Amino acid sequence: MAVLLSTKATTMQAWRDALLAVDPSLEIRLFPDAGDPADIEAAVVWTSHDMAELRRYPKLRLIVSMGAGVDHLLRPPGPPPGIPVARLVDRMLTTQMGEWVLLNVLRFHRQDPDYRAQQRDKVWLELDAPVTAQRRIGIMGFGELGTHAAGPLRTLGFPVMGWTRRPRDVPGVETFHGEDGLHAMAARSDILVCLLPLTSATRGIVSASLLARLPGGAFLINGARGGHVVDADLLAALDSGHVAGAALDVFEPEPLPADHRYWSHPKVVMTPHAASITIPSSAAPQVVENLQRARASRPLLNLVDFSAGY
Rank of each mutant, 00 (worst) to 15 (best):
L4A: 02
L5S: 06
T7C: 14
T11C: 07
W15K: 11
W15G: 01
A18S: 11
L20G: 08
V22E: 12
D23G: 02
S25A: 13
F31I: 05
P32E: 01
D33I: 08
A34G: 07
A34Y: 08
S48F: 15
S48C: 15
L60H: 00
I63E: 01
S65M: 14
A68S: 15
L74P: 15
L74H: 15
R75W: 11
P76M: 02
V85M: 06
A86S: 08
T95A: 03
T95V: 10
M97A: 06
M97D: 03
W100V: 00
W100G: 01
V101W: 00
F108S: 07
H109R: 15
R110F: 15
Y115L: 14
W124I: 09
A129I: 10
V131T: 09
Q134L: 11
I137N: 06
T147S: 14
H148V: 09
A150E: 05
P159C: 04
G162D: 09
T164S: 09
R165G: 07
R166E: 07
R168K: 10
D169T: 06
V170Q: 10
E174Y: 11
H177P: 04
G178K: 06
G178P: 08
A184Y: 06
M185I: 08
D190M: 09
L192F: 07
L195D: 02
L198M: 11
S207L: 01
L214M: 11
F219Q: 07
D231Q: 11
A232L: 03
L234Y: 05
L235W: 05
A236Q: 14
D239F: 05
G241Q: 02
G241H: 15
V243F: 08
A244R: 03
A244F: 01
P253Q: 06
A258N: 08
A258Q: 14
H265K: 12
V269W: 11
I277H: 04
I277A: 09
T278C: 01
A283H: 04
A284T: 04
A294S: 03
R295V: 03
R298A: 02
P299V: 03
L301E: 03
V304P: 00
V304T: 02
D305C: 11
S307T: 12
S307W: 10
Y310D: 13
